[in-house]
Each structure stands twice: as C-alpha cells, then as structure tokens.
Simulated scan of single mutants.
Amino acid sequence: MLELRAENSVLVVLPEVGGAIGSWERAGHAILHPVSDPNLVAQKLRAVAAYPLIPFSNRVGYARFEFGGETFELARNFAGEPHAIHGNAWERSWTVAHREPARAVLSLDHAPPEDPAEQWPFRYRATIDYRLRDDGLSVILRVENTDRRPQPVGLGFHPFYPRTTEVELGFAADSVLIAGPDSLPAEQVAVEGEWRFSPMRPLDGPPLDNCFRGWDGSAFMRWPDRGYALTLTASEPLRHLVVFSPPGKDYFAVEPASNMTDAIHHPDDPNRGLVLLKPGEAVEATVEFALARL
C-alpha cells in the first residue's frame, strides 16, 4: 500500500491489487467510493475505488476472438458471465517504478508464456502515473506492444463514486449502446430522453450499465448535499463513456474508455476504439479529476 499526500488530499494506491486506487479522500470527504466486488475474483474481496482497464475495456464476447488469422480463447474472469471483462491488468500485481510524496508510477509487464496467455495472448508493458494535487488527480495510462506481432489494444479507467440522494451527473454524447440479454451490444440509439445527461440532471432514473459513444471527453458530477463537485476530463483516444449505476447500491461508476463494448467483434465499425499497435508502438491517455466547492 502506498499513501500519497497533497495538502488536504490523501490517495491510497494498491500496487499488488491491479495497480488500483484504494481510496481518495480530501478533508474527510470520500471523493471516490471503495467497492468490493465478489465477481472480480482476482481482487480477493479487497475494496478498490478505481482501477485500470488494460488492454481493453468492458467485455470480449464469450471470451473468444479472432485476430491476424488466429483464434484466441480468454479466461472468463468475471463470475457468472461467459465473457472476459476489463482486460487483465486489474488481475495482476504491479511494480512501483517511481515514488514521490504526491506521485507514484507503477509498471506491469505481461509476457506470455511466462504469464498466463489465457489472460491476454500478447506481450505488453503498461504504466500508470498517479499525480495527486490538493484539488485534483491526474492519471496517465500507457500501453506499449512488446510482442513481435501487432495486437489490438483498448484502455480506460474505472472509478467508483459515492451515490447520494442528491448526486447529479452531466455529459454530452451522440449515441448509446443498448445491451441484449447476454450483456453485449444489441442496438445503438441516439442520446435522447432518459439517455440524455446534457444539461446535468439527478442520477435518479432506471439502472444503467451502458456505453455512450461520441463522448466529448468531459463529465461533471455534483453532490449538493456534500457541497462539492468533480469534473472529469479525458484525452484522446478515450471517447467512449461507460455509466454504471446498479440498483440499490451506494455507488456508481463513470468510466472513460477508448473502445466500445465488445469492440473486437465489430471490425466494420470505424469508431470502435481499438488501437492496432505494431511491435514497439504505444498508446497513452490521461484522465484528469478536478474538485471544486459549491
């Protein structure tokens, strides 16, 4: 466990639990909400407040895909689902590559066959750079292809936030994917009516577990009952936004991601968000969180 401090902000980082954030608090307020999910078996019931999505976000349908003339089978790493979910970086122990009072850089080398190929069949090197400020946090994600062949890569970040009776959410997007019974995209519809979060509105509608597309890279959350707001901004190529608000829970998630759900099975979609990395190439993205008082 690493503890980063910047004036009134304290960030706990868990290198051995997928490089995750354990908690982020400022002046006694929980900015992120630690969640223990028994379906994510590799987290071993450890509560985490945010974790990286590498080398893909969301699901690979039925944990199987074809690429470069080969067929690959992945481990089903989410209890109760037939799919592979959120890549494998969250399942691994990361190394602390650099440490300062308010900064930590973590690294991970995934190298089959020494490492489990059923988690991901290609070699890659990932880094996370956490930079804490009193009024915010920067998260810089980087994935490099260290294999001898090209590979498809997506990336994202999965933060949880406290869900109170007054919390509000706002963002702009073009369309949203509607999932079928198998939790994979079945339909794409325009962002209208109950799907619309521009202007900002209370997060009080039906449960959501949806990927929004054509996101402009900014999202806004406000807690009037707690007196603060949080702005999330994400760089290219993070132009998908997953909103997860499960019923009856005291948290929700707003997750910037590069790729759509099950992107590997949508090769004809020019905006699916996967990046084809040749050997030695890398992709990088930054997620910024900025706090403000109301």
Rank of each mutant, 00 (worst) to 15 (best):
M1V: 11
R5N: 11
A6P: 14
S9R: 10
V10A: 08
V10N: 07
G18I: 09
E25I: 03
A27M: 11
V35M: 01
P38R: 07
P38A: 05
N39F: 09
L45T: 13
L45Y: 10
A49P: 03
P55Q: 03
S57M: 12
V60D: 06
E66N: 09
E66I: 00
E66C: 01
T71H: 02
F72V: 10
A75V: 01
A79C: 04
P82W: 06
G87V: 04
G87I: 00
A89Q: 13
R92V: 03
E100M: 00
R103D: 11
A104G: 13
S107T: 15
D109A: 12
D109Y: 05
H110W: 11
A111T: 14
P112I: 01
A117G: 08
A117M: 11
F122R: 09
F122H: 11
A126Q: 06
T127H: 11
D129E: 03
D129Y: 05
R133Y: 09
D134V: 06
D134E: 14
D135S: 14
I140Q: 12
E144M: 13
T146Y: 08
T146I: 11
D147M: 08
D147F: 05
R148E: 12
Q151W: 13
V153E: 04
G154D: 11
P159S: 07
T164K: 03
T164P: 08
T165A: 15
V167S: 05
V167M: 00
E168P: 00
A172I: 04
D174H: 05
A179E: 15
G180H: 10
D182I: 05
D182S: 13
A186G: 15
E187S: 02
Q188P: 00
Q188R: 14
E192P: 05
E194M: 07
F197C: 02
P199N: 02
P199F: 00
M200W: 00
M200E: 09
P202I: 12
D204V: 10
G205R: 06
L208K: 01
R213M: 03
G217H: 13
F220V: 01
L232Q: 13
L241V: 14
V242L: 14
K249E: 13
V254I: 15
P256H: 05
T261L: 14
T261C: 15
T261W: 07
D262Q: 13
I264N: 03
D269K: 02
D269S: 10
N271R: 02
G273W: 01
K278Q: 15
G280F: 09
E284I: 08
A290I: 05
L294W: 01
